[in-house]
Design a protein around this nucleic acid. Structure first.
Length: 577
DNA sequence: GCCGTTTTCGGCCCGACTGTTTTCAGTCG
């Protein structure tokens, strides 16, 4: 049996919880750290082990001899004796119980010892029967909170897709901003780091009169319940299930608090460890030496005092950015206003809802200089995909609209493109003679998602080898929270992209964000060019470009790595001849 | 259990809030 990285990560995470149940010091953190590292690994552990043996496993950050041996045992046998022993002592469904808000290792242990609770169903039954309130350390309130938390888990399932929830977040931000007591406000946390999905929202406020701010916040009309209501920190759950935390700080601590609440947790831990080496102490109030304040007002100052260059929030994942920063080698990330064009747009010629002209008008308003029309092709019959004849007609239509725009004095260009379907064998569903007529030829997979990895990889590489194909759209095909990526060897894809001079797309659609961040990083390191496109099916979808840029920044991409940061002629020059 | 330009042994991030407590453990971020 082949063991996935997620499976190994889950076992390691559960071991951390079990050790914490037994009050074992420090080891839990070692296991937890490794669990995260394994989950984030872009390479398959199984493959890594086959290639490099246990030595290769030990290379992973945070993995030493002992954990490497345990990972080896899981890969070889499918089991881990150490884990089984721990599980025998407390045979409970750790992962699901840990996802219940308010429950941690100690409480889970108690619930098992006293009430023999092993899973969320039994937890719910006991809570409903009022059996939990009488346990030592528990009470009526705890029992109530457990039931509420279970209810939420049932309906929301956890994480929100950033691009879809962002309008709600910005509304709360602007409502709070209107209060006269609010001097400064910023959304920190995973929202500021622009993670593709978020678990909650952390809002930071500077105010010398926090009480009215807190009162307004917990009484907002869309609040379902108040989780905590303190003098400087409050938390609510909204009716849509989103958790929002607000923290009020003094101006002098703003930078430290912003840094603290932006995270990531592991970026912060690394910063505090650096602080300790300097004899400092870093917390959410500032950077201190004993009782003396060194700084705290801005993030820039804090990084500087730690000998670091300022690190953009999108990079703060403790993935090597701190080392680069200390060597003054951080990349200059692409900016949110750097795009000049959008290279993937579907119109009402196929499954889009707006006309070519409507897209052009909105794009001009957004300040873009060009767009590429990329309707589907004939194999996608359900979308009314274009055949060679219809495509020629569309090219002629685009020419006419360009003339109209230019007559009106606009310096804006609509380019003819396509989202040509890649067939099962890697050939395309339109003839080369038609493709030749396009300004930009994009291609994508829309079928046979379940091919074996090797075949799927070959299929895409064959498409890239077509001399007319400029871009591969959404290269891994995942849809966040709905379906996983199809199996491809991303390293081979990237190698082939470099060799064939094919551009890979960062699809900005909020539930795609395909490529994901660490694949983008691989492209950047390999020198493969990328494009950020909205994949719009409606004019309003062009607003999603922002999230594509965010994703590119999370992947450490610079302006130069993204072809559509350039004027139209320069962009076209980068494509295949 | 991991790690090292202060260390191969002796450290390991830090504070707020809640609910249970009469001074604090557990959880969270």
């Amino acid at each position: 049996m082949k063991i996935s990285n997620e499976h190994i990560s889950k076992i390691l995470r559960e071991i951390a919880v079990y050790l914490e149940m037994q009050n074992v010091p420090f080891k839990p953190r070692a296991y937890e750290k490794t669990a995260i590292a394994v989950a984030d690994l872009s390479e398959d552990l199984h493959a890594l082990y086959e290639k490099g043996g246990i030595k290769a496993i030990e290379e992973i950050e945070g993995v030493g001899v002992s954990i490497a041996e345990k990972i080896e045992e899981i890969i070889k046998t499918g089991y881990l004796k150490y884990y089984d022993q721990l599980k025998k002592k407390t045979p409970v469904d750790v992962s699901s119980l840990m996802s219940v808000e308010g429950l941690g290792p100690k409480k889970i242990k108690k619930l098992y010892q006293e009430l023999k609770i092993t899973n969320v169903e039994e937890l719910e039954r006991s809570a409903r029967a009022g059996k939990i309130r009488s346990l030592e350390g528990f009470g009526e309130k705890t029992e109530e909170n457990i039931l509420k938390s279970l209810e939420f888990l049932r309906q929301a399932g956890g994480r929100f897709i950033l691009g879809y929830i962002m309008p709600d977040i910005r509304k709360i931000e602007s409502d709070l901003k209107k209060l006269k007591e609010v001097k400064k406000i910023i959304v920190a946390g995973s929202v500021r780091r622009r993670k593709e999905t978020i678990g909650d929202v952390d809002i930071l406020i500077v105010s010398s009169k926090p009480a009215p701010v807190m009162d307004f916040f917990v009484n907002m009309p869309n609040v379902a319940r108040v989780v905590t209501h303190g003098s400087t920190k409050s938390a609510v759950k909204l009716k849509n299930g989103l958790d929002v935390d607000v923290c009020v700080v003094a101006e002098k601590s703003y930078g430290a608090a912003l840094n603290y609440f932006t995270g990531s947790k592991y970026h912060n831990i690394a910063l505090r460890e650096i602080a300790i080496k300097y004899g400092f102490n870093l917390n959410e109030y500032g950077l201190f030496k004993g009782k003396k304040t060194i700084t705290g007002k801005t993030e820039e100052e804090i990084y500087k005092k730690l000998g670091l260059d300022y690190i953009e929030p999108e990079m703060r994942e403790n993935e090597g950015e701190i080392e680069l920063s200390s060597e003054h080698k951080l990349p200059k990330l692409i900016g949110y206003n750097d795009l000049q064009g959008d290279l993937q747009i579907q119109t009402n010629w196929t499954d889009g809802s707006n006309t070519i002209e409507e897209y052009a008008e909105v794009a001009i308003k957004k300040g873009l200089k060009y767009i590429v029309i990329t309707d589907h092709t004939k194999r996608l019959a359900m979308t009314g995909g274009l055949d060679e004849k219809k495509l020629l007609k569309q090219i002629a239509e685009i020419g006419k609209i360009n003339e109209k725009l230019s007559a009106k004095g606009y310096k804006f260009k609509i380019l003819a493109g396509s989202e040509v379907d890649i067939l099962k064998d890697g050939t395309l569903d339109l003839k080369d003679e038609a493709l030749k007529k396009l300004d930009v030829c994009g291609t994508a997979i829309h079928s046979y998602f379940n091919l074996p990895k090797e075949e799927q990889t070959k299929r895409i590489i064959r498409a890239m080898e077509n001399p007319h194909v400029d871009i591969i759209f959404h290269p891994t095909g995942r849809i966040i929270n709905r379906r996983p990526a199809y199996e491809v060897d991303i390293d081979e894809i990237i190698k082939a992209a470099k060799r064939t001079n094919t551009v890979l797309e960062i699809d900005a659609f909020p539930d795609r964000l395909d490529l994901k961040d660490d694949y983008i990083r691989k492209c950047v390191f390999a020198g493969v060019k990328l494009a950020i496109d909205s994949d719009a099916h409606l004019v309003s979808h062009m607003d999603f470009l922002e999230f594509g840029i965010a994703q590119a920044r999370r992947g450490w991409a610079t302006k130069d790595d993204i072809i559509n940061t350039r004027p139209v002629e320069a962009m076209l020059k980068l494509l295949k001849k």
